[in-house]
């Protein structure tokens, strides 16, 4: 096998895995096509997996355990919120810079926090009508 640089090899391997699409490729097939032995091959595959470029899924083929490799899309640079924050933006704790330090017995204590108390009193008036003391 001709000497090629690690980077070159990784690129070729990644290209092959990408071309295999959603069915993926068995890692033993990949090694064979690249002309690598299992030691070099598994190291290469682990490097790619570590970089998050491929996924490895354990499968049994002809009674032997091996891995099927699939390409993973690089992480997106788009902001996609899957957590709904619209309804919590209103709660003062959510936008409080001291949330991380807040706890019972600490300097910031949710049980006696005046900001939380004021919000609850306002909320009580809004939701339940102004029939209390306040």
């Amino acid at each position: 096998m001709p000497k090629v640089s690690m980077e070159e090899l990784e690129k070729t391997a990644l290209e092959m895995i990408r071309n295999s699409g959603s069915t993926g490729i068995l890692q033993s097939d990949l090694w064979r096509r690249l002309g690598l032995d299992s030691r070099e091959g598994s190291r290469l595959v682990l490097r790619l997996a570590k970089k998050g470029l491929i996924r490895r899924e354990q499968v049994v083929v002809n009674g032997r355990r091996t891995y099927r490799l699939r390409y993973t899309r690089p992480p997106s640079l788009e902001l996609k919120l899957k957590v709904d924050i619209e309804d919590v933006l209103d709660i003062p704790c959510f936008t409080c810079p001291f949330l991380g330090q807040c706890g019972p017995g600490n300097f910031n204590d949710p049980r006696t926090c005046p900001i939380l108390q004021a919000w609850l009193e306002r909320k009580a008036r809004e939701l339940l009508g102004d029939d209390g003391k306040a």
Binding site: P75, L81, K82, V83, V88, F94, L99, T112, L116
Partner: peptide, 26 residues
Amino acid sequence: NLHTINNVLLSRKKSVLRNLELKLEY
């Protein structure tokens, strides 16, 4: 940190929930 932002916000929501539960107990 676009790939961790959802987990960060979720753990923030959980902290808020814990605070409110403590307040209710009090």
